[in-house]
Nucleic acid binder design. Structure first.
Length: 445
RNA sequence: GCCCCCUUCGUCUAGUGGUUAGGACGCAAGAUUUUCAUUCUUGAAACAGGAGUUCGAUUCUCCUAGGGGGUGCCA
């Protein structure tokens, strides 16, 4: 059996750390199994769906390397859904209801006040043809509910194990709105059947939906796919994520200089028992993916951890992986430069700082002009390499008596203008004699 | 309110009816860098609380507390 998974976002917002996880998990599992990954845009809600969100979602997935094998748009498939609706009506599984949202709301509140679960009472099932005609004559239009079988629905969840849901604890789901448009429930099932989805992998917020959807699969004469409901992500203090989603969007991570592989590495490993470590390729993440490693408890997401992982990833990144990006921002320092500075950056953009230090101009910081001038006079002759720094500082130490921090700190400040930075034995040859000499004399160059 | 799920170092987690309760990230110390960062090594750090079952419970049961989810003409 070829595994086919799907990520089915509704384009009503941007991708964020919460809804990225089902995308990643579906993708990882499909790749791990040598299967296919589908992108399905669930845009049945015409009111809230926006084309710009569709583009944003694709941009984010592409950036992360989550390529999809094929794609579909639900809004282009309404004819198919219409046909299935007729079938369900003929079966008597779909029945018209006329309560307004406020009437339903009142019913729910009454039930809750009495300590009862707010399950739809199926009053519409009792309506006679004449009553329906009268309601329609009042101008009411029906919405349509799927009549659930009063039985226990069970499945073996790849994350949660044996699951069962009493259908009687669920309201008959509304499949078709009063205005004739679809809620996600039915189109989702129809498409899962048609595109031969083998595994439905989604967040545990869908567990109750699965109970109803399995019954719809059966009503349509199909076998339900395998389900997996992964744990949800919460904020760093354990709060639900919904409040902070704007600041946790994938595009904001990108704008803040996070590497795609850092976001992938982090999102794929939190809430799982895989080590939190940077992966240089998506392949390496999918290789270690299994459902057994996913936890059932909610996991906390902390942006600071992502930033740390990002820095670590950069420190491990070989020159071949970045040379095009370096050249694209005008940095032609080659592997020598990258290897010299990569351990000192937190985001890729930080290389610009060190490129500036190497190329100038920078403002040297001179704390003791006499010391720096003496050091300048001792700069070694000939071409410089990584041994020049040692030779030079030994000479300076001998002549001035300075050692340790008192020796190196002033030289670093004069040569780079900064108190921290990469090893100077690597930086000195890159800065070169002309600039080193001028900076030690206090000249900005 | 009702239903479901969850709770092990600060964080993500492994694990077993008897373990020195393991790893990763972070943190601390040491080494390297004759400085900072990087890198390496070492270390500190946890079974939510209370009952019960048992020779023995972190592990099994129940209760409590805390967290998450659902309860939508959202997905």
């Amino acid at each position: 059996m070829t595994v086919i998974t799907r990520f089915a976002p509704s384009p009503t917002g941007n991708l964020h750390i919460g809804n990225l996880r089902p995308a990643i998990i579906n993708w990882l599992f499909a790749r791990n199994q040598g299967g296919q990954f589908m992108l399905r845009i669930d845009d049945t809600d015409l009111e809230r769906s926006k084309e710009s969100y569709v583009e944003g979602i694709k941009e984010d997935l592409t950036w992360l390397g989550l390529n999809w094998d094929f794609e579909a748009r639900q809004f282009a498939r309404f004819d198919k859904y219409d046909a299935v609706v007729e079938e369900l009506k003929a079966q008597g599984r779909l029945y018209p209801c006329y309560e307004s949202t406020s009437e339903l709301d009142r019913k729910r509140k009454r039930q809750m006040a009495r300590g009862l679960p707010p399950v739809y009472d199926r009053a519409a099932l009792e309506l006679t043809d004449q009553q329906k005609a009268e309601l329609e004559a009042e101008g009411r239009k029906p919405h349509w509910r799927f009549k659930l079988d009063a039985r226990t629905v069970s499945w073996t969840d790849l994350v949660r194990g044996e699951q069962s849901i009493e259908a009687t604890s669920l309201s008959d789901p509304i499949l078709v709105r009063e205005d004739g448009t679809y809620l996600y429930t039915l189109p989702s099932v129809i498409d899962d059947i048609e595109f031969k989805i083998t595994h439905i992998i989604r967040g545990e917020d869908h567990v109750a939906n699965t109970g109803a959807q399995i019954q719809i699969f059966v009503a349509l004469g199909a076998k339900a796919p395998i389900f997996a409901h992964h744990n949800l992500i919460v904020g760093k203090d354990g709060e639900g994520l919904s409040k902070r989603l704007g600041s946790l969007s994938i595009s904001s991570f990108r704008d803040n200089g996070m590497e795609a592989m850092a976001v992938m590495s982090h999102a794929a490993t939190i809430g799982s028992s895989n080590d939190i470590r940077p992966h240089l390729s998506t392949q390496s993440i999918s290789d270690e993916f299994t459902f057994q490693k996913l936890s059932r408890a909610p996991a906390r997401f902390d942006e600071a951890e992502l930033a740390l992982l990002n820095a670590k990833l950069l420190h491990e990144t070989p020159f071949e992986a970045v040379f095009e990006r370096l050249e694209a921002i005008g940095i032609f320092g080659g592997e020598t430069f990258w290897d010299a500075v990569k351990g000192n950056i937190e985001t890729f953009e930080d290389v610009k700082t060190w490129w500036q230090v190497v190329n100038g101009p920078i403002e040297p910081v001179i704390e003791d002009a006499g010391f720096c001038e003496e050091a300048e006079s001792l700069l070694p002759d000939g071409d410089w390499d990584t041994s020049s720094w040692g030779a030079w500082t030994s000479a300076v130490k001998e002549n001035t008596g300075a050692k340790g921090k008192a020796l190196f700190h002033p030289l670093r400040l004069a040569l780079t203008g900064q108190p921290h930075g990469p090893e100077l034995k690597n930086l000195l040859p890159l800065i070169g004699r002309e600039k080193a000499s001028a900076r030690l004399k206090g000249n900005a160059i």
